[in-house]
């Protein structure tokens, strides 16, 4: 009896307030998501009159999202998936190659290379948008498939983006793989390519998942350069560019289909994020624990 009273007291003083803080912060963190879900199932399609518990309308918003031929949501999803998957793969592999070399090969100007890659990408690509438009435009004059409105040039543009950050995170991970392993392999006659493919890549799979997923989310989020290169024709847009069309203008704000589309786009990313949480956190935090 006495034991359990002290347990209650412990719970009251040490844990209760922690739960209260936790619930408040959770409410803040989930705030827009909750309203997104509620508006997606609501009948009014207006966030302004929205109640927390929606006036359930079934799947009307989803139906109108999928039946809108001017704003083809499924095509946007496909475009986004193609672009984000290909560009994230490209980003991860290019970053991995550079990071392997920066981590393992001794050559002059190693530090300068890494710093330069990082600093160069601090130039706002927003303003380079005009130049990128001109580059892709003149490429398209000669090779149609590399021109405006095509996905390949956009994939190449994003493939080189974030190279600095990715290389940096990957390098700090490769650095933690003991170099004795690959030195032993080298003595056994393994080439640098073999060491990379058979030793480094398998050991670094978790960090590749992290980089891939972070790049993937980053590309899903991009809308400015995407809209400059792909244009604003219905079928060529991505989710980020396309969904905004539902709530452009002050009169035609159509929150119902917008939130429905946003919810559908968010759910898979959220699920992946929760399942791969452990890896993702280790990637995000890398650098902070090795001061």
């Amino acid at each position: 009896m006495k034991f359990s009273r002290s347990k209650v007291k412990y719970w009251m003083t040490k844990l209760l307030w922690r739960h209260i803080v936790g619930i408040l912060v959770a409410a803040f963190a989930l705030f827009p998501l909750v309203w997104m879900i509620s508006a997606a199932f609501d009948v009014t399609g207006q966030l302004s009159t929205q109640k927390l518990i929606p006036t359930f309308s079934g799947f009307d918003n989803f139906q109108s999202l999928f039946s809108n031929t001017e704003k083809p949501y499924t095509t946007w999803v496909r475009n986004s998936l193609v672009i984000a998957t290909a560009a994230a793969l490209l980003q991860t592999s290019i970053g991995a190659l550079a990071a392997y070399s920066l981590s393992r090969h001794k050559f002059r100007g190693r530090r300068v290379t890494l710093t330069t890659i990082l600093i160069v990408q601090m130039f706002p690509q927003l303003l380079a948008a005009t130049t990128l438009f001109l580059i892709i435009n003149s490429l398209g004059q000669t090779f149609d498939f590399l021109g405006l409105g095509h996905q390949l040039p956009l994939i190449l543009i994003f493939g080189g983006a974030a190279l600095g950050v990715n290389t940096w995170i990957l390098k700090s991970f490769f650095d933690t793989i003991p170099s004795e392993i690959d030195e032993a392999a080298k003595i056994d006659g393994a080439s640098h390519a073999l060491i990379f493919m058979k030793i480094i890549v398998p050991l670094a799979t978790p960090i590749f998942v992290v980089i891939f997923l972070l790049s993937f989310i980053g590309i899903l989020n991009e809308y400015l350069i995407t809209s400059v290169i792909l244009g604003l024709d219905g079928p060529s847009m991505t989710i980020a560019v396309g969904l905004q069309q539902f709530i452009y203008g002050s009169y035609a704000k159509n929150w119902g289909p917008f939130t429905a589309g946003a919810l559908l786009a968010t759910t898979p990313v959220l699920i992946l994020f929760i399942f791969l949480q452990k890896y993702l956190i280790s990637g995000l935090v890398s650098g902070s624990t090795k001061g």
Binding site: V25, A29, A240, L243, I247, F258, I274, I281, L284
Partner: peptide, 16 residues
């Protein structure tokens, strides 16, 4: 729960 904001594409969450 605290890290969900990282997982929602920010274009969409900012518009919400």
């Amino acid at each position: 729960i605290f890290i969900t904001p990282l997982a929602i594409p920010s274009v969409l969450s900012i518009l919400v």
